[in-house]
Amino acid sequence: MKIDKNTTLKIAKLCRIKVRDEEIEELSSQLSSILDWVEKLNEVNTDNIEPLNNVSIATLPLRKDKENLQDQSKEVLSNAPEKLENYFAVPKVVE
């Protein structure tokens, strides 16, 4: 699959990574060649094959509905780049 510059920018926007003008060309061609390479999978006939999403033998464990009443805010906020009045703070969002 050929990834053009616009597609690169579109994906970059989706995953919130700023791509600078001087990077777009090289990045697009790298992404294109990786996608070309993985498209080798098209050789494989996968009709009627179920996808294998997980190889764990476990069955989904269920937790009891017990609440932890401890206030962990100190721990949770301790690494925050910016915290104000016990909130995480980010640049203002205008809705």
């Binding site: 993985v38 999978l41 098209n42 494989v44 996968t46 094959i49 179920e50 996808p51 294998l52 999403n53």
Partner: peptide, 9 residues
């Protein structure tokens, strides 16, 4: 999806 099917194989 294709990759997960190949994974099964």
């Amino acid at each position: 999806m294709k990759a997960q099917k190949v994974r099964r194989l």
